[in-house]
Simulated scan of single mutants.
Amino acid sequence: MTTSERIFVQAIRAYGARHGIEVDVHSGGWLIAMRRGETRRFAFGYDIGLNSAIAHRLANDKSATAEALSLRGVASIPHHLFLNPKLGRNVVGPNWRDAMLALFHDHPQGVVVKPNEGTSGRSVFRVTTEAELDHAVGEVFAMSTGLVISPYVAIGDEVRVVLLDDAPLVVYSKQRGTDWRHNLDAGAKPVLLEDGEIRTACAKLAIAAANAIGIRFASIDVVRVDGDWRVLEINSGVMMEALAKLHPELVQATYDAALDRVFGTNS
């Protein structure tokens, strides 16, 4: 093991060492093969292998997640999908630009443009003018087949809930720095929440969101807007690199619990 390995990989190695599981790391740490006797499992990226294919795909698609949550009446931030015009007129349609401008003008406080798939706040733009919109759309379409546009809202608080089969194993707030975003990669700091009203409300909403798409192990971001909690997004890959710097035992225990489900083990 090298110290440059992601915490996710280190956690799987540690679990394997304690439970007699062979762990082979490939593709620079992004593909992990696990074997105990005749039982073989894989982890990929930050996905430990518990979620169904459809739940994984829904969670990785911001627009689809928002639609699924709306169907179940789960409060969430809207994400409107626009496909890359490079896919062709028959796929995208002729009026995508007009629809995009209409949505932009419906929100005079601004909108947020970001890839439909992806994490860590990369290529996320706050847009308040048509020129900024053109720039953001060009940047996102240069690296993505689809983007989503959400109304810009003043987020009072953002909380991440890591769920395993409806149990909130980790709940922490993201304390942002100078950036308007709450992404950990943008400098936000994770602060564990103690038992109380906020933790309970966030966990309840996260469980409702997980049930809406049928996901078992996920990190769910919820935000408080005008005093009400809403789901921002669901992540099927559970990344806790930043949290591990502050609470390594909690992170290891969380991955351990998920791997127990993968291998049918009682730690």
Rank of each mutant, 00 (worst) to 15 (best):
I220Q: 10
F141G: 04
R97L: 13
V112C: 04
I207L: 02
K114Q: 13
A203D: 08
P190Y: 05
D195I: 01
L147K: 01
L192E: 14
L232W: 03
A206K: 06
W96V: 09
A218P: 11
N95Y: 14
P115C: 07
P94I: 02
H107S: 06
D134S: 14
K174H: 10
I220W: 12
V222D: 02
M143K: 06
D157W: 08
V159H: 03
T200R: 15
R160A: 06
S123K: 10
V225L: 08
N95F: 13
L232D: 07
Q109L: 13
T128S: 14
A102W: 11
G121C: 11
C202N: 06
L193V: 05
P108V: 06
Y152A: 05
N95S: 12
N183C: 08
W229L: 07
G214A: 04
P108C: 09
V171N: 05
F141T: 05
G118A: 09
D165A: 12
H105E: 15
V153Y: 03
N116C: 05
N211C: 10
P151I: 00
G187T: 11
V113E: 09
A210S: 14
I155Y: 02
A131L: 10
A186H: 14
L193W: 05
V148F: 00
P168E: 05
S173E: 15
E132K: 08
D195W: 00
D226E: 15
V113K: 02
A186P: 07
L193Y: 06
I155G: 01
G138R: 00
L193F: 03
Y172I: 01
R199K: 14
E130T: 11
L169W: 04
A102G: 12
A218T: 12
R199A: 10
N95A: 12
V153K: 07
L164N: 01
L205W: 09
G118R: 05
D226K: 07
L163F: 06
G118C: 10
D157Q: 13
V113P: 10
V231T: 07
F104A: 07
S144H: 14
A99N: 13
A188L: 00
R230W: 05
K189Q: 15
R181W: 13
E117C: 11
T178C: 01
V225S: 07
G187R: 03
L133S: 09
D221K: 06
V159A: 04
I207P: 03
I198T: 15
D166Q: 15
I215T: 04
F217D: 02
G118E: 08
P168K: 03
A206H: 06
A218S: 15
I149L: 03
L164V: 01
M143R: 10
F104L: 09
I149E: 00
V91A: 11
V124L: 08
L232Q: 11
D185G: 15
E194G: 13
G118H: 04
L147V: 02
D221P: 04
P94L: 02
